Computed example of a mutant assay.
Amino acid sequence: MRFIPDRLRNGRRRRSPLLVGFVAAASSLLLLAVGAPGASAVTLGPVSLPGDEAPHRDASMEWWYFTGHLQGKDIFGKSHEYGFEMTMIRMDALGTEPVTAIWNGHLAISDITHQAFKQDEATYALLPDVVPAGGGFNNTVGLYHMDGKNGVNHLSGGFADLSYAGINLTLRQTQPAALHGNAGVIPYGPFGQSGYYSQTNLKASGTLLDHGVPVNVTGTAWQDHQWGDFTAGPGGWEWFSIQLDDNTQYMLYFIHNANNQLVETVGTRVNANGTTTNLAPGTISSTPLGSWTSPHTGITYQQKWSINVPGGSLTITPRLADQELYNPLVPQGSYWEGTSTVTGTINGANITGKAYAELTPSITLPTRGSVWQGILDALNL
């Protein structure tokens, strides 16, 4: 559910200092890049773990994405509450050995206690794939690191200005991963098809350094892993990860075409015992109840939603209005990703919980070779 930032995709439109620095570091591989993207297309079949936790060689785009809700006390006994997102995006792998790709790291902290939001989506690197023996992932981009296998994951990193630093989390999933759609393959609207599974009930523990003060935290997190040899789009989506207090989770995905028409609806309910149920598209819907206009990019996003699911309805309310990830140099490709509360009624019972919502208004996913071509275009090669 992540995106290709326009600063790489649209090399002809605008050159940011970030892009110029990146392409200088990548120049030694540009000649390889011209011929590299001719590898075979990704074969999407039944997802098999832990093998499919690893990078997929010929994916045009792939992401490992963690969000979560944390609470804890600092060394002075003061209580804190946070939401977090850490994402690694892998784009346009070169068909060489070792397989090398363009990587982009995102980090965001929603500080609920202080009603503050900190974000960074501008960290890039050209890196070889790291594939642990037997599967799993081990990704590092700049100051951000994530690794995982068989339901045990570790995240570490922090912002360079040390506002929220020393993030060190262990996330454990005790139930099987949820394979969405047809054994882990979903229809992806204008983007084609996608491999997709989630760990929907990760138990989190660790530490976070909040402006120099250590905070011991626990909580609940979610991991998405998605990949494909995507068609170009463009399109967009609204996506929700819903974690209810009765130990039920929902993944809801509303995918739009370039005209903002809903073209695919994908939903999964993860039952309390870990089994999954695919939700028929006609049984789930999302209605926005408000909006918010970003002072950073001028984009207007939905805010607060009424969600219909089989047996009832839920209201999802953001805990902060401003949870937009963006690059001030290139606002295209911005998106809203926010921690939220859940209230509602299902099968006659009142229900509460937590959620993350992602709003990607308009994006074009990369086809194989397109990101490298954008770099070549930016260099006028």
Results as ranks from 00 to 15, higher is better:
residue 340 S to Q: 12
residue 146 M to Q: 09
residue 57 R to S: 13
residue 131 V to D: 11
residue 347 N to K: 04
residue 104 N to Q: 06
residue 71 Q to W: 14
residue 89 I to Q: 04
residue 302 Q to S: 05
residue 336 W to A: 10
residue 156 S to E: 14
residue 280 A to H: 11
residue 173 Q to I: 07
residue 10 N to I: 08
residue 71 Q to R: 13
residue 211 H to V: 14
residue 257 N to M: 07
residue 229 D to V: 10
residue 46 P to F: 15
residue 191 F to D: 00
residue 123 T to V: 15
residue 278 N to E: 13
residue 210 D to R: 13
residue 167 I to C: 04
residue 270 V to R: 10
residue 125 A to Q: 15
residue 127 L to T: 15
residue 111 D to K: 04
residue 187 P to C: 15
residue 77 G to A: 14
residue 303 Q to F: 07
residue 26 A to E: 00
residue 307 I to Y: 08
residue 149 K to N: 15
residue 244 L to P: 04
residue 236 G to S: 13
residue 35 G to I: 10
residue 107 L to T: 01
residue 226 Q to A: 13
residue 200 T to H: 06
residue 164 Y to P: 02
residue 142 G to D: 06
residue 376 L to N: 13
residue 75 I to P: 00
residue 85 E to Q: 14
residue 3 F to C: 05
residue 22 F to Y: 09
residue 101 A to P: 10
residue 319 R to Q: 12
residue 179 L to N: 05
residue 259 N to M: 14
residue 85 E to T: 15
residue 364 T to C: 12
residue 284 I to M: 12
residue 146 M to P: 03
residue 310 P to T: 13
residue 195 G to Y: 07
residue 245 D to M: 04
residue 193 Q to V: 02
residue 118 K to C: 07
residue 175 Q to E: 08
residue 31 L to M: 03
residue 318 P to T: 10
residue 134 G to N: 00
residue 114 H to Q: 06
residue 90 R to L: 06
residue 55 P to V: 00
residue 353 G to W: 04
residue 326 Y to F: 15
residue 90 R to T: 03
residue 288 P to L: 01
residue 140 T to H: 06
residue 352 T to F: 02
residue 334 S to P: 12
residue 124 Y to I: 12
residue 266 V to Y: 11
residue 42 V to D: 05
residue 87 T to F: 01
residue 311 G to Y: 00
residue 220 T to H: 01
residue 41 A to E: 15
residue 221 A to V: 04
residue 8 L to N: 02
residue 335 Y to H: 07
residue 115 Q to G: 01
residue 328 P to T: 14
residue 160 A to R: 10
residue 325 L to D: 08
residue 317 T to P: 01
residue 82 Y to E: 06
residue 133 A to S: 15
residue 274 G to C: 02
residue 308 N to R: 12
residue 19 L to S: 05
residue 150 N to A: 02
residue 232 A to C: 06
residue 173 Q to H: 13
residue 267 G to W: 10
residue 193 Q to L: 09
residue 264 E to F: 04
residue 292 W to Y: 15
residue 181 G to S: 12
residue 302 Q to T: 13
residue 266 V to M: 12
residue 14 R to V: 08
residue 171 L to I: 05
residue 283 T to M: 05
residue 203 K to S: 02
residue 251 M to A: 15
residue 21 G to H: 11
residue 381 L to P: 05
residue 47 V to M: 03
